[in-house]
Lab assay of single mutants.
Amino acid sequence: MTEYKLVVVGAGGVGKSALTIQLIQNHFVDEYDPTIEDSYRKQVVIDGETCLLDILDTAGQEEYSAMRDQYMRTGEGFLCVFAINNTKSFEDIHHYREQIKRVKDSEDVPMVLVGNKCDLPSRTVDTKQAQDLARSYGIPFIETSAKTRQGVDDAFYTLVREIRKHKEKMSKDGKKKKKKSKTKCVIM
């Protein structure tokens, strides 16, 4: 069974824990209790493949930012979460993405942009803004509501699919490099 290491990042209060708990335990946590770091595991079937999701729910508070490099190193894919009623959390996505790329030393890291709290009427981040940002990053965008469960499975499952595509691409690139290195030079 394939294991996928997913990391949920975003500013404090955007609903990272609520999304994760909704996926794992099928219930909505409405009281806000700032996370330092929590880890969850769940076995699911995605596109006919049974897999184990190892999900790291991270601290959004700035005082825990020193811990970010460590979990970013171990993560295979990242859910970059903002709240649709919090423009600052949307603007912060850029910083999370840049930090992930720096730590992973790669421009090509599996990510999904997630606009959470889409059940709320007080939207300050337009869907088109988020779609445009995701398009500019070359990553999928999904709106979710941890409260109603809308888009929750889709967000995590899409990230797994992005990781699969990335692994497939990397193995193809690896095979191309191996083929090239088999060419021999004969000096007579």
Rank of each mutant, 00 (worst) to 15 (best):
V7Y: 05
V7S: 03
V8Q: 01
A11Q: 08
G12S: 07
G12R: 07
G13S: 06
G13V: 05
S17P: 00
A18P: 03
T20G: 14
T20C: 08
I21G: 15
Q22T: 03
I24M: 13
Q25H: 11
N26M: 05
H27S: 10
H27M: 06
V29S: 11
V29Y: 07
V29T: 09
D33C: 09
T35P: 06
T35D: 14
T35Y: 04
E37K: 12
D38C: 11
Y40N: 13
R41P: 12
R41Q: 12
K42D: 07
Q43H: 10
V44P: 09
T50W: 04
L53E: 04
I55V: 12
G60T: 07
Q61W: 05
E62I: 08
S65N: 14
S65I: 05
S65K: 06
M67T: 14
D69P: 06
Q70H: 08
Y71G: 12
R73L: 07
G75W: 07
E76H: 14
G77D: 00
L79G: 00
C80H: 02
V81M: 12
A83S: 11
T87F: 04
F90L: 14
E91G: 03
D92M: 03
H94T: 15
Y96M: 15
R97N: 04
Q99H: 08
I100Y: 00
K101I: 05
V103E: 02
V103F: 11
V103Q: 05
D105T: 04
D105F: 01
D108Y: 08
D108C: 05
V109S: 01
P110I: 01
G115Q: 04
K117V: 14
D119R: 00
L120E: 14
L120K: 04
R123F: 09
T124N: 13
T124Y: 10
T124G: 12
K128D: 13
K128V: 13
K128P: 09
A130V: 14
D132I: 06
S136A: 08
I139N: 05
I139F: 08
I139P: 02
I142F: 10
I142W: 01
T144N: 08
R149F: 12
Q150C: 05
G151C: 11
V152T: 06
D153M: 15
D154S: 11
F156G: 03
F156N: 01
T158V: 04
R161P: 00
R161I: 09
E162C: 08
I163W: 01
E168P: 04
E168R: 06
M170Y: 05
S171R: 15
D173N: 06
D173H: 07
G174P: 14
G174H: 01
K177C: 12
K178C: 12
K178M: 14
K180D: 15
K182D: 15
K182M: 13
T183P: 15
C185R: 15
C185D: 15
I187D: 15
M188S: 15
M188K: 14
